[in-house]
């Protein structure tokens, strides 16, 4: 066995090993995708199921129908259409207000230096560590004082007022913008107000998108506040709580497939939004460590 031969043997051996490794990875990935996608497929299949009941002994429904989707939007007991509109309204308004608040707060803490800055920062940090819904009973009473009891406005306020505490990510982003930009503008006679609107914000597209995305998605998934705030007022529910209600003991048999249809209806737009915007999301979480 000559030297050259053994070298080529080694090469083919190496290539074969690599090929094997790749095949193993492909197999693992495929198995994982099946596991991950299976519940989603199950959800879609259930939403098309014609038979009533919680579940069936078979995977693929015997009767495939779109009736559940029709029921979803026509049922009187569970006015899903109304809930969808409610959620959309709350999501849009709380998205706008929270994004503005977060940008304002994080800009102030990141770029401006003032006397009580440290105190405020620590204060915000401390407040953020109380469990969010610990004080919801009290918040409910306060809403009552303002005459906002069981209203969608109350939800917008709760989501936006709390959002102010989520300034860290945006602050981290602002910190990475060179301060020399501000200095230059200041020399040109710009006020801090102008710097904020005309220089910093246009540079902050990723973080604006990230903040808007997370604050928009929030209301679609919140269960706790809605359940406590809206109590019996079913026409003011949002989708998350409304759909949850369908799964209560009394109704789950008749409405489980309708629930699945509702879940599909809200999952589609959010999934598309998320998939399209994912790079902003990543940029936001890693605080700019990744260049989108």
């Amino acid at each position: 066995m000559t030297n050259t031969q053994s070298k080529s043997d080694m090469q083919t051996g190496y290539a074969a090993k690599r090929k094997l490794a790749n095949i193993v990875v492909y197999i693992i990935l495929s198995v994982m995708v099946v596991i991950w996608i299976f519940p989603i497929i199950w959800l879609i299949l259930q939403s098309l199921r014609g038979e009533k009941g919680i579940s069936t002994k078979y995977l693929i429904p015997h009767q495939i129908t779109f009736d559940n989707y029709v029921t979803l939007f026509t049922d009187e007991r569970f006015p899903f259409g109304q809930w969808f509109v409610n959620t959309l309204l709350v999501a849009i308004f709380s998205c706008i207000i929270s994004t503005l608040f977060i940008l304002m707060i994080s800009y102030a803490f990141s770029r401006l230096r003032f006397k009580s800055r440290k105190t405020f920062l620590n204060f915000g940090l401390i407040l953020g560590m109380f469990p969010g819904f610990m004080s919801m009973a009290a918040t409910y009473n306060i809403m009552e004082v303002f005459g906002l009891k069981q209203s969608l406005v109350a939800l917008v306020i709760v989501y936006s007022a709390g959002a102010g505490l989520g300034y860290q990510v945006a602050k981290g982003f602002f910190d990475t913008i060179p301060r020399s930009l501000d200095e230059a503008a200041k020399i040109d006679g710009a006020t801090r107000n102008q710097i904020f609107w005309q220089i910093i914000l246009p540079l902050s597209k990723p973080i604006i998108v990230y903040t808007a995305l997370t604050t928009f998605i929030g209301p679609w998934a919140d269960y706790i506040f809605v359940s406590y705030f809206m109590k019996d007022n079913s026409e003011k529910y949002t989708v998350a709580y409304g759909l949850y209600k369908m799964l209560e003991n009394q109704t789950i048999n008749d409405y489980f497939t309708v629930f699945c249809a509702g879940a599909v209806v809200i999952a589609i737009p959010i999934t598309i939004l998320f998939v399209v915007m994912q790079r902003f999301y990543v940029a936001g979480v890693t605080g700019g460590a990744v260049k989108g």
Binding site: P39, I40, A240, L247, F259, A263, I266, T271
Partner: peptide, 14 residues
């Protein structure tokens, strides 16, 4: 990513 994007309460109740 699709599974991450579907709202949590939906996937969890499911």
């Amino acid at each position: 990513v699709i599974t991450a994007a579907v709202p949590q309460f939906v996937t969890l109740l499911l």
